[in-house]
Design a protein around this nucleic acid. Structure first.
Lengths: 150, 150
DNA sequence: TATTGTTATACTCTATAACTATA
DNA sequence: TATAGTTATAGAGTATAACAATA
């Protein structure tokens, strides 16, 4: 090929962000979007979003927990969680079993297929994380992790 | 009063987050939500969201810039920006003037009312930021700022 | 009475595609 | 042909309220 097929576009001209320079929330938001976009791209082949990955991870680590516990752990509203779980259940990745003891609760479990998908997801998520470390540099990555972890 | 009027609720039981412990994106997301909720509460009285604040701030610092420049600066898609600006224009906070030179562009400016509202917003946003520093502690706040700023 | 899961509604955000007017 | 702004649509996230079943 002689030349790029993509049309030449003017370099995106960026302006002064003014007082946003002094706001933590602005930079946290920009980083979060950038990280999630990379995550989504990396796991696109298996169609697992960041929220779905977090749900599978917590169920995997806490088999039999209830929806309310899952929601509290991840900060997801219980009404929102219902639809999230519906989709994963329809995909055959998890099941809602009757809870022993409390008739109001469901005990959440990954199915065999859910375990397999989660294993793939974890491999891709690890690749994503290594990519972050490479792009941010070890020092900055470590500084962020140390400052962010509660 | 003798007792709290709010019903007693069981302490939210939180589970193990498993492999999420090793993912930067998880912690960045949790922090971002926490910071934005605080921002929204602090500026609730004047009904300015984080996105609206960022738009007012960049227009204030770059009077006459175009929508595409504003979008590039903040990472906001131009289609989304249209509705954001519509609302602020309807509230009388900004105006879209004809650009000299290029008939396709608008030159964005804050109105007098927009300047006044932005001044209020900046005061409240500063209070929000001081609150963050107090809640996170100076060391952690500084570490985050240093690691986040590009 | 309170809690768990569910349904429903409304609003925001994000991602596209297509249209227009201008260049 | 490409760009700036606009409109429209669909999907996801967020915030509520209300309901049934169970405690």
């Amino acid at each position: 090929m002689t030349k790029s097929a993509t049309p030449r576009r003017s370099p995106p001209m960026v302006s002064d962000i003014g007082p946003l320079k002094g706001h933590l929330g602005y930079f946290v938001r920009r980083l979060q979007i950038w990280v999630f976009q990379d995550f989504i791209r990396t796991l696109a082949a298996i169609e697992i979003s960041p929220a779905q990955f977090s749900v599978l991870a917590v169920i995997h680590a806490n088999e039999g927990l209830s929806q309310i516990e899952l929601g509290n752990t991840l900060g997801i509203e219980r009404a929102r969680l219902v639809r999230l779980l519906n989709r994963l259940e329809r995909r055959g990745l998890l099941e809602r079993l009757p809870s022993n003891g409390d008739g109001r609760r469901h005990a959440l479990r990954l199915t065999a297929g859910g375990q397999a998908t989660f294993k793939q997801a974890r491999n891709l998520a690890d690749r994503h994380e290594s990519g972050l470390l490479a792009k941010l540099g070890e020092a900055r990555y470590r500084a962020l992790m140390d400052a962010l972890r509660p």
